[in-house]
């Protein structure tokens, strides 16, 4: 059997690719948390809806599925804004437990509505570039994965520029640093809530499209585990911290894959939570978290 290094490199690239989905989810969750201090456990359902929106448009139009990012992202932004307006705004400030419980209601509602609309049989579509692989550092990499990694990086750069360079982005950051202060400065924080929720949902929608084009199967129930993992990542990294999310993602990705190699794939989910628990025991605010709420 050929030796270790190229295998490590290969696993690394898959980790990077799988990480794209997690990163898009985790950053969306983080953005929402930063601005609203709300944790949406139903975030994975946006991923699932993004996948099905892509699938539906693909089935109707036959366009290159990558192009359908322009459909899935706006539609999910719209859905996100609606859900923020109808479900989260009315309960804002009534207690953290309520936010968690309302997400459970949303999970049941969205998953089963999707099962009614699209049936719960699994779906898969084939990317037009499916059979093309290119060699990068001696590792065979499907072209699709390369596009996905690049797309994710572009989306993140776009998000960074939006948050740093535009008025709206600056207002959002101000809100997330100090809500009361922002309010005093004349920032419409409720608008910021809506926008951040919309962007978060849109990022999850983009992740959904990327999930579909990479030839992964999807069902109405696919969202829960990635969302829980994304949430574990931002807890490990520290709520509200973007570098924390990236470090958290890397730790979790490495640990899961290491677990598959050593103690077996059955431990894949358990190991993420074990790490989460260990981190919380020793640093209850997460690795990069600020101590204050």
């Amino acid at each position: 059997m050929t030796g270790g290094l190229d295998i490590v490199l290969q696993v690394g690239i898959w980790g990077l690719y799988a990480g794209c989905i997690y990163i898009l989810l985790a950053i969306g969750l983080n953005l929402i948390f930063g601005v609203m201090k709300v944790v949406n456990f139903a975030h994975g359902e946006f991923l699932m809806l993004g996948a099905y929106v892509t699938f539906t448009f693909y089935a109707i139009s036959g366009f290159n599925p990558y192009v359908l990012l322009v459909a899935s992202v706006p539609i999910l932004i719209l859905i996100g804004v609606t859900i923020e307006r109808l479900c989260f705004r009315p309960i804002l400030g009534t207690g953290k437990l309520n936010e968690i419980f309302i997400s459970i209601g949303l999970i049941y509602l969205i998953q089963n509505a999707a099962a009614v609309i699209w049936t719960d049989e699994y779906r898969i579509i084939h990317s037009p570039f499916e059979s093309i692989t290119i060699s990068v550092f001696g590792v065979n990499l499907p072209l699709d994965y390369l596009i996905i990694i690049i797309t994710t990086i572009l989306i993140l750069i776009g998000l960074y520029l939006f948050l740093r360079k535009t008025r709206l982005g600056k207002a959002m950051r101000a809100t997330s640093q100090n809500r009361k202060g922002a309010m005093l400065m004349g920032i419409n924080v409720e608008k910021m809530d809506m926008i951040s929720f919309g962007i978060g949902a849109g990022l999850a929608g983009a992740a959904g499209t990327l999930w579909v084009v990479s030839g992964q199967v999807f069902t109405p129930y696919m969202g829960s585990i990635p969302a829980v993992k994304a949430f574990a990542i931002i807890i490990i990294g520290g709520l509200g911290s973007i570098p924390g999310a990236i470090v958290g993602g890397i730790i979790l990705g490495l640990a899961e894959n290491f677990a598959i190699f050593t103690i077996g794939g059955a431990w894949k989910d358990a190991i993420s939570f074990l790490i989460l628990i260990v981190v919380l025991i020793f640093k209850p605010t997460g690795l990069f978290g600020e101590s204050a709420e």
């Binding site: 799988a18 992964q216 794939g265 894949k268």
Partner: peptide
């Protein structure tokens, strides 16, 4: 012998 979780979609490491 390798196990995976029900509903798994990423088998690359296994």
């Amino acid at each position: 012998e390798d196990a995976f979780k029900m509903g798994e979609s990423d088998f690359r490491t296994v």
